[in-house]
Design a protein around this nucleic acid. Structure first.
Lengths: 240, 240
DNA sequence: GGGGTCAATTACTTCGAGAATATTTATTCT
DNA sequence: AGAATAAATATTCTCGAAGTAATTGACCCC
């Protein structure tokens, strides 16, 4: 096990693997990220792990307390609300700029991405309680394409970072949200339509509603005791 | 020389020193950040430098190309325009939230910060071509106080990161901007007045104008040849 | 029995050298 | 002579251990 990936540098490789495991749900909020144990898991030296963790700390995906090592940040309800507010604004700006700057080429690839998303099943028979990996990827790509034409790397990074943070909440608070009555297909179709029609205001409000619905869904499922929830999640995922 | 600072860890110390030198103008855009060279300057091992650089890379303050080490990002005019647009939006959101959430305590400290700023001279006789360190700090604190009551660390980080990036441009493109006709005092007073009056729209537009004026000032002074400008800057600062 | 101090242990941080990789220079071939 | 290849050089990336700070547990005192 733990075969080495085909990345350019070991450090970058470890970086993306840790990042992956963070919003896989493998690494629980509040848990310690010890270079020694991670190093054993990834067959890498502690120095390499530290560098990867430092990188993640810069992105605020992990927290670093001097002299006490690295941790996954704790989650709380109020922060999710604020996070969503910021996400809506930043995402809105990105979408407006994207619509202004994106040409025919962009519209085409957006339609393509939407089609791919629409034709990818959200659940599989094998694992009906989670979103399928394919759908998750297609969803991510649709959103990335949507905002991508704004052509401001910094802004796109912010969006991605914020979405990632939200995703983290979803994974830990309501991992079994696939059984909801939400009309994803409809939401995406309406969004696409508004974008192609060039109606920025409508598109932005649809996108914002999309984000807020996700947040509300999480908040509704919020348990009284966060720690218990996390313990529960750990039991489900089977991590130490 | 190169006495060790009084920070908690060597790594954190080096981190802030590099960060400092980046927007001091000591480290030029495009220049290489070699762990060996920096390690000698700060009396630290390459590992420590790498960790500090990784942290900065996560914040996008330095660029990391695999196998080629770390660099200070290159600057260009279009990016500054986009940067300013994003800054205005994010800053606007932060100000609105700050005004909603900030109470009497906040208003008081804002008035205090403004007063400190107003009474601090922008130039000194010793170095009349640059903003004085005191004024620069007071200015920074006024803005930080202004947005601080929003109480969303992530949002504040974004603002700071964006302002820092803009500041970087100012340092390299027009380091001698103190000889302008800009009415800083008036701008700040008007802003304070709008905030205290509770007029969010007016306050935001004043703040945005503040940022845009800075950006425009830089763009007007933009030289034809960026590389020559940087070389010029290096000559002025006397770095290798 | 509760609280505080001290030692033992654990784990975080730093180091400098060795292996891997990119860049530069020199050489050879067309 | 110019381009492509190959050796040489410089630099980055990785490692495992040594140093240093923080935590845990035991012990003693109140």
């Amino acid at each position: 096990m733990s075969k080495r990936g085909e990345s350019k540098s070991l450090s970058a490789d470890v970086y993306s693997r840790i990042r992956e495991e963070i919003y896989n749900g493998t690494l629980a909020p509040g848990s310690r990220l010890q270079p020694s144990v991670l190093g054993e898991r990834y067959n890498a030296s502690t120095t390499v792990i530290r560098e990867a963790l430092a990188l993640l700390a810069g992105e605020r995906l992990v927290q670093s307390r001097t002299g006490q090592g690295f941790f996954i940040p704790m989650i709380n309800k109020d922060e999710l609300v604020d996070l969503t507010t910021v996400l809506c604004h930043v995402e809105g700006l990105a979408l407006r700029m994207s619509m202004e700057r994106g040409g025919l080429e962009w519209e085409s690839s957006l339609i393509a991405a939407h089609h791919r998303l629409a034709r990818t099943p959200r659940r599989t028979e094998k694992n009906p309680d989670r979103y399928s990996q394919d759908w998750s990827n297609a969803h991510k790509e649709f959103h990335a394409t949507l905002l991508g034409a704004c052509d401001v790397p910094l802004l796109l990074d912010m969006c991605q970072q914020l979405m990632l943070a939200t995703e983290l909440y979803r994974v830990w608070v309501s991992p079994l949200v696939t059984h909801n009555k939400r009309d994803y297909a409809g939401e995406h179709a309406a969004l696409l339509e508004a974008v192609l029609a060039g109606e920025a205001d409508r598109a932005v409000s649809l996108l914002n509603e999309h984000a807020r619905t996700t947040a509300n869904m999480i908040i509704e499922n919020w348990p009284e005791d966060t720690e218990a929830m996390i313990a529960d999640g750990i039991a489900k995922y089977g991590v130490e």
